[in-house]
Amino acid sequence: MDFRNVLRKNAIRTRFVIATYLLLMLMIGLLVDTAIGANPYLDLTDNMLAFLTFKTLPIATLIILAISILLLIFIHFKGHKIMLTGMNARLISPDGTLNAQERQLLNIVEELSLSATLGYIPKLYLLDTPEANAFAAGWSEKNAFIGVTTGLLNRLNRQEVQAVLAHETGHIIHGDSRLTLYVGILANVILTVTNIFGSRLYIASGNRGGKSNDAASKARLILIILNLVLPIITQVLYFYLSRTREYMADATAVDLTQDNQAMINALKKISAQHDTENFEDGSTGRAYRKAAFIFNKGDSFFSTHPSIENRIAVLEGRKTF
């Protein structure tokens, strides 16, 4: 696996997805402003340009932006905590009384943190569930942690556990938790605004002449159309971003451990269990953990993870993504 090439491709794709979300948010804000306060002497395009250049104050766009910023601030400080809700999670502290397995886990995390030059050691949580899985959250010394299930520890050997923890360390290194939470917030703001203005809010065109009505009507029509197609577009983009981050975390695991076979074996064992057992539940945390788990069934436009077959093919150098 060409680790540097994987990182380069993923960085390009990430920038593309983020730019697309921001452009969608800007376009929707300008459409809402036009639908509410179209200038009677300008057509749709000129109205949107007037709001974009602040010749007319884009009140709706600024409100949407302000709401997004507030939600992003909240997620920045509280989002990582949601990941543990609904799970019987126990902090494995180096200051506590530890058995041999727990000590080994802490040693692995410490080794990986040093190899990755993180500058700190993420917290480690043991999750009491038969499901073989793991996930990471956070991106700094204050909020980074790795969660490992007892089911995973019971099925994998030390090298395979180390590969899984290296994968999760990769997510922390690259701030994947922060990125996916931020993108999720942007997607929800976009969908909420288009839903309100596209199907529920009927705005009177006013009595300022045909041109005004025409521009506002076109803006509302576009919002109605976007209300139908954006749920699909935003989800496809979100899942695409999530899948690329999994490939990058696999690449990071190989780079940190210098062993692609351990990662391959771990993925095979984890996926084999999930083929025969179902651990889905409806907890709030589960919805957030789904994209963060090392394994989740996929490989479609609406999957958070690539298929195990594709991940193994990339790890073995038989395929690029």
Results as ranks from 00 to 15, higher is better:
M1N: 06
D2K: 14
R8D: 15
R13C: 11
R13N: 13
T14Y: 07
V17A: 13
Y21D: 05
L23T: 08
L23K: 02
M25L: 15
I28W: 00
G29T: 03
D33N: 15
D33P: 03
A38I: 06
Y41L: 10
Y41V: 11
L44H: 04
T45H: 13
I59P: 06
I59D: 00
I63S: 07
L65Q: 10
S68C: 12
L70E: 13
L71Q: 03
L72W: 14
K81A: 09
K81V: 04
N88M: 09
E110M: 08
S115A: 15
Y120F: 15
I121A: 05
K123H: 13
T129M: 12
T129L: 07
N133I: 09
F135Q: 00
G138E: 01
G138T: 01
S140H: 11
F145S: 03
F145R: 06
G147H: 08
T149R: 03
L153W: 05
N154L: 14
R155Y: 08
E160Q: 05
E160S: 10
V161L: 04
A166W: 11
H167M: 07
I172C: 05
G175E: 08
T180V: 12
Y182N: 10
V183N: 00
G184S: 10
V189A: 08
F197V: 03
F197Q: 07
R200V: 13
R200C: 13
S205M: 09
G206P: 11
G210D: 11
R220Q: 15
L223S: 05
L228R: 09
I232E: 05
L241D: 05
L241C: 01
S242F: 02
R245M: 12
D250K: 12
T257H: 05
Q261S: 11
M263K: 12
K268N: 15
D275N: 11
N278K: 06
F279I: 08
T284C: 02
R289Y: 06
F302Q: 06
S307G: 14
S307T: 10
I308H: 01
R311M: 10
V314H: 00
L315N: 07
F321T: 09
